[in-house]
Nucleic acid binder design. Sequence first.
RNA 1: GCCGAAGUGGCGGAAUUGGUAGACGCGCUGGAUUCAAAAUCCAGUGGUAGCAAUACCGUGUGGGUUCGAUUCCCACCUUCGGUACCA
Length: 939
Amino acid sequence: MNYNFRQIEAKWQQYWTKNQTFKVENDSDKPKFYALSMFPYPSGAGLHVGHPLGYIACDIYARYKRHKGYNVLHPMGYDSFGLPAEQYAIQTGQHPAITTETNIKRYREQLDQLGFSFDWSREVRTSNPRYYKWTQWVFIQLFNSWYNNQTDKAEPIESLIAIFEKEGNRSVNASCDDDTPVFLASEWNSFSEKQKQQVLLKYRLTYLADAEVNWCPALGTVLANDEIVNGVSERGGHPVIRKKMTQWMMRITAYAQRLLDGLDTIDWPQPLKDSQTNWIGRSEGASATFKVIPTGRNDEGSHQIEVFTTRPDTIFGASFMTLAPEHELVAKITTPAQKSEIDAYVEATSKRSERERMADVKTISGAFTGAYAEHPFTKAPIPIWIGDYVLANYGTGAVMAVPCGDQRDYDFAKHFDIDIPNIFDGVDISEEAFADKVNTLIANSDFLNGLRHKEATRKVIDELEKIGQGQGKINYRLRDAVFSRQRYWGEPFPVYYDADGMPQIIAEGHLPLELPEVEKYLPTETGEPPLGNATHWAWNAEANKVVANELIDHKTVFPLELNTMPGWAGSSQYFNRYMDPHNAAAIYSQEAIDYWQDVDLYIGGSEHATGHLLYSRFWQKFLFDRGVAPKDEFAKKLINQGMITGTSAFVYKDVAQNKVYSKALINGKHVNPIHADVSLIDSSDELDVEAFKKWRPDLSKAEFILENGKYIVGREIEKMSKSKYNVVNPDQICEDYGADSLRLYEMFLGPLEQSKPWNTAGITGVHSFLKKLWKLYLAVDDSEPTPDNLKTLHKTIKKVEEDIEHFSFNTSVSTFMICVNELTAQKCTSKAILGPLAILVSPYAPHIAEELWEIMGHTGSIANVSFPQLEGKYLVESTKAYPISFNGKMRFKLELPLDMAKADIEAAVMAHEQTAKYLDGRTPKKVIVVPGKIVNVVG
RNA sequence: GCCGAAGUGGCGGAAUUGGUAGACGCGCUGGAUUCAAAAUCCAGUGGUAGCAAUACCGUGUGGGUUCGAUUCCCACCUUCGGUACCA
């Protein structure tokens, strides 16, 4: 009987579905384990072999935990809102929901084929109204919350209103907009409803703001910082410009410190933690206020410039100030004489795209405002410049420039011939700035003279506080996140605008607010987002339902928000929703989350480091503050699977003639490498020339110059992508070798976290392993196992268990191969050995394991059988083949009892005939004996 | 520039606390089987020299610590990922 993987795999996949083998309940006497793979965006291209890598690893671990007696939650779903379906809708008019549905179906087929132990009854789709109802619900909770810095957590907005009514906002320490005015209780109480709402927006955790946003004209939408790579959009690579727009924002900055602190409590990869740390960008320093010296302009009040600096100790070295060109004071302080120069400069920078600005970092530019600020201590006038090296959205958008201590300030000063006072003792600054904090003392700095960096910093902050012109401050690079997108295929905001134009929330009971139908998926002619095309998109606040736009009267019927939520909204809570996915009354029940708590193992790509994984942590902490989630970190352990890269193939076309050379023949010739589809190449890099000619008709007339009668292609490792013709999808491999072979092979390729090239050639190795495994069971019987059999089995149990616990799946595949090779050599037929072996293999190759289990006479799935117990007694050795080395070089082996004493080992080695040979008459200086390990003779 | 990861045979990789470098698999070479091929099985396979026993070299490079270093320390080189005028 041959190993008929097609029949076996189909049989067990049907069995698992029919018997709901992997359906999991929310209550159990067993301990819980939550294993989660990041859910995919269902793209039209389907899965390629790189996608399942993390899923397979996670599935192995989930199945292992099931064997170990855990109640395992292992769900899967789809992040099904997103740009590609919408772009397709724009091109073809097909509703994104239809495209999405088709793609999901294809994904599901591909996933089912691979034998995952997902509980599909818990599937979620972010674009399903029953799901996004709860995304909208979280938005409402954020809208109705503020961040109290005193208690360091989010609180209901009502508690803030109560404070305002009693004592105004002077005593409130909250995360709020910078321009929040100070008011008394009496003032608050006399505010109009609109004024109150405007003030509250400055405190809400999601709020409307006129923000400088990254506008992408080609995509017709704004993008978040993490959606922009190298100044162009992550998707499509379109240019991005800066634009002021009214947008929904998320006050993630309120959580900056806690997002940083939380990293210490979770077992996530250090590189991922590092990139979150850098993204949050905490820096410690001081804020200082510089008064602008009045110049007698009649429209000029008293202005002051606030700066943030990490080097307050260098304040006496400040010889100028630089404002960002966008800084609001620029227009107010510029002198008439300098106005035209400043205007021209501001105009020029606003036109430069972010990309241009980044492309030439080297060019120094700026302009003088004509105004001066007063140094807080020396009272000396300091010229105020503007320059685009100062960023409007970092710190205060203004810099106290200390050219002797900061290279950019130094370059700017040199370029514009500004004074560079030296405040470092014994340091030469004639060539460059001195940024070292440690190896100098402060000089020429009044009360700071002779102090080190640390003392000077402390002292200057004290002095700034005394004169009321500054204090110690911690600054973060992290910005509040733009939460509006001018797209159709996303979650609608549960928001309408009242007669005052203030946002009003649709009550929870009326959710979900479902996406309206539109004729076109493009922005409207007036530049409004695609929802502006909907004719039925107004809110009747009495009937609490969506009605036609023409009924808008701003009394009972109001316009609805036209923006939709960004891609990361739906993925920021999905892991909790899996715990209770069909709950219509709540995001999840208290019992469900009390039972499952959090994710024990989360596997996914590192590209989500500063997007999904940061936003999710933010929402989780918020829900924790509001008592909705029991843990303030959602995933205890996270693993980034590496990328599987493609092995591209190249043919080499002569530039001048219509000749294509085999790889070894290109030396000295001027050739163009051309991608060849990898499906046309065999395992020894030989090209099927005829098939290639059919595939590239333009080269069908070309002469192919062969080596040894073969055309050999060149190979190169590149990212797997359609355009490089190096994509390998799992379907063909499942067809040729089966899912179990694919699963084993993906694991066998190398360590999970590392990126590695895909090369189909090696799959025959794991496939023949499965065939050998299968053969072992052909004559399975009840014979007594031999000591060798038992030793092989228990050695394997030990290693495989250790490997799974360490996520070292590649080495356990090797271990299985060694085990099967040994048992085959031992002619083992014993059920007492082969039974446990089938269980060991089952997390990796579940289909064949089920079949073998059945062959051995068991009924029911192997998935719930206990993992074999390691019995150390079978592994006990009485002797050891000691490697005997001379000066660190192993020369021969000597079999000695393991319980032999050190001195006896040494004596046995010295007495050995080979020892005399290697010593060659010398007397050893020393003999190192490590019992159980090694003997080293020195001398 | 800064942060991070990684450099081991022809290839993917192994060596879990400093103790036999190259497990396992691919590929390759030779052989068995076959009319032939596929499949399967057996043997060999880091490099150099040698018929061989064996010797020397060998984990990116150069130093160091150690009886002993792929593993620890210092300096450097290369590749990949992230980030970028962050005050």
